[in-house]
Every structure is written in C-alpha cells, then in structure tokens.
C-alpha cells in the first residue's frame, strides 16, 4: 500500500529520450561550471579583467551561469514537451 507513487504518473514513453537529453545538457553545463572553478583557482587574476558593459569576467561569468541555467531549462522543457506530444500523437494514431 505504501510503495506506490503519491499520484499515479502513467506510462512514460519519452522517459529514455528525456534522460538522454537531460544528461547531455547537464554535462554541457557542468563543463561551463567547472571552467569557472578552474579559472578562479588556476588564474584568479583573469576574473578581474573587463569584459563588457564595464563589468569584469567574474561578474559576467557569474551572471552568465545563472542566465545559462534558465535558458537551458527552457530549451530542455521545449524539447521534452515536443517529444511527449509527438509520442502521444503516435499512440493516439495507433489506437485509431
């Protein structure tokens, strides 16, 4: 009685596809994040260099990581939703 999900989630035909896309996007983001840590520890003076709008690399990179996370999230949702809709449409066709 206590081991089923809190709400039934139904069949998830797109789950493998979403997992693949998610892992790839995560790796891409992790590379950008790791580069940030590496620059801070290996070449910290680089972080003080001006980049754009009078802001240095530290501030630009920091804002960039936050904005990149938001954009990547929106893109990921769009890709997943498109695939889910496609598979749902295929299932409907099969039923017909």
């Amino acid at each position: 009685m206590l081991h089923e999900p809190a709400a039934p989630s139904g069949k998830e035909p797109a789950s493998e596809f979403k997992k693949r896309v998610g892992v790839r996007m995560f790796i891409a983001y992790a590379v950008v994040y790791t580069s940030f840590i590496v620059i801070n520890t290996a070449a910290p003076k680089l972080m003080g260099k001006p980049v754009a709008f009078g802001l240095n690399l530290a501030v630009t990179y920091g804002f960039g990581l936050i904005i990149l996370a938001i954009i990547a999230g929106i893109i990921y949702n769009a890709i997943c939703t498109k695939k889910e809709n496609e598979l749902a449409a295929d299932e409907e066709d099969d039923v017909k």
Binding site: P5, F26, G73, Y76
Partner: peptide, 26 residues
Amino acid sequence: LYSIGYLAGWVMALFVVAEPMKKLGK
C-alpha cells in the same frame, strides 16, 4: 559565489533528478 553555486545545483535537479525521482517515490 553561493548564489552561483546554489542556482547551478538546480541544473542537476532538473536535467537528471526531477522526473525519475517523481516516478520512483511516494
């Protein structure tokens, strides 16, 4: 740096953990 790290952690949560955890847990 805490702001950057706290937010970056959500990328992991979204891309890797959110949906599988929802499916597996109660």
